[in-house]
């Protein structure tokens, strides 16, 4: 009987020591709740990364556009040769006789 009590006491002591270091039951319950928050947080991080990726891609395109091959180079002031009313100098008015079409005339 005495041995049994000793044994029980020893086990109780062990249980007490174990329960002091063990995490309470509430902790796993609490950690489940922020999982949604964690997912949301990761979504936000992913979104920010995607937008940053887009901005970086745009900067890259702009850098490449400045770096056009020499065969595609256009004089930056060429548009200044297209002056308002330039077509007046480039073409002469064509005066064609206005003959009304006759009946039976297929042309």
């Amino acid at each position: 009987m005495n041995d049994d009590r000793d044994l029980r006491d020893a086990f109780a002591e062990l249980r007490n020591a174990e329960s002091r270091s063990a995490a309470p039951f509430r902790v796993p319950v609490l950690t489940r709740t922020p999982r949604r928050g964690g997912l949301l947080r990761w979504s936000v991080v992913a979104i920010v990364l995607m937008v940053a990726f887009g901005v970086l891609l745009r900067d890259e395109t702009q850098v490449r556009s400045d770096d056009t091959p020499i065969s595609e180079w256009r004089a930056p002031t060429d548009f200044l040769l297209l002056t308002p009313g330039v077509e007046l100098v480039q073409t002469l008015p064509r005066l064609e006789p206005q003959i009304p079409a006759m009946k039976g005339d297929r042309s």
Partner: peptide, 27 residues
Amino acid sequence: VSVGVATMLLLSGVALAQQAPEEDPIA
């Protein structure tokens, strides 16, 4: 919802990236 928002933002990011640079730097 977050997947939807992410897709929208991804598309807008790509659209931002695809904006054509201005044709003429002076004009």
